[in-house]
Amino acid sequence: MHSLMKGILAPHLENMLTSCVLSISDLHVSVEGTVVIKGLSLEIQKGEVHAIMGRNGAGKSTLANVLMGHPDYEITQGSIHFNGTPLDELEVFERARAGMFLSFQYPQAIPGVQVGTFLRKSVQAVRKDDCPNNRELRDEMKAAMKILGVDNSFLARYVNDGFSGGEKKRLEILQMLLLKPKLAMLDETDSGLDIDALRMVADGINSISDDAACLVITHYQRLLDHVKPSHVHVMIDGRIVKEGGSELAIQVEDKGYDWLEPTNA
């Protein structure tokens, strides 16, 4: 729905609108001259967990990147609203400050920047309104690190520099817990995690999911055993071809994607 409709709707409908954290309508995206997303619509309300599944190259990361504002991706058609604001009005850092968070499929190393410093600076940048003081932040960090099973030495390391795959993913979730986003997008955060780490990451997601809207990109039912999705979408070739509840994820895990190809349907 469009933000222009605000104010002309009955109050209860307007409430529904405002609880709509993310609203994507007929989105087309191209990168380096090729069209990757070809007409995608999606709405996510607060408290919902949406899972997106799809083959390699289907355009899942592209969707996440375009939502976060990656400069390489061009929106050629359609619109995205975040809490009623058209996203194209916001710079990347403004999106983060407005409450969007992306857990990257491939988090970047920032050599020489300590995790502790980075977390503190990021919290100060993003949570301007309810910025915890140093002591509160330390307590929050402790609690979050406990959920994720990382110890204090983690804070002295350089951001993602020489991290194992699993450590990178834990740092992403640690950031998510501290930044308290309104929309959390997780791009294959479960990939490459051992069983224990997977459970910890899932605990992390569950701990925010009541207050946030979550978009979880995954290839595996595994994560969805721990994080109950309210909606599951299957993406093929830049479009959502099927929507369902958590049973759809089980079907996909069972049968793969062929049966969902538009030509086979």
Binding site: M68, G69, H70, P71, D72, E91, V92, F93, R95, A96, R97, F101, L102, F104, P107, Q108, A109, I110, F118, K121, S122, A125, V126, Q175, L179
Partner: peptide, 16 residues
Amino acid sequence: GEQLFYLMSRGHTEEE
């Protein structure tokens, strides 16, 4: 550009 994007996605301006 990917490093910058990563940091900016954490609320930091390009200069920061």
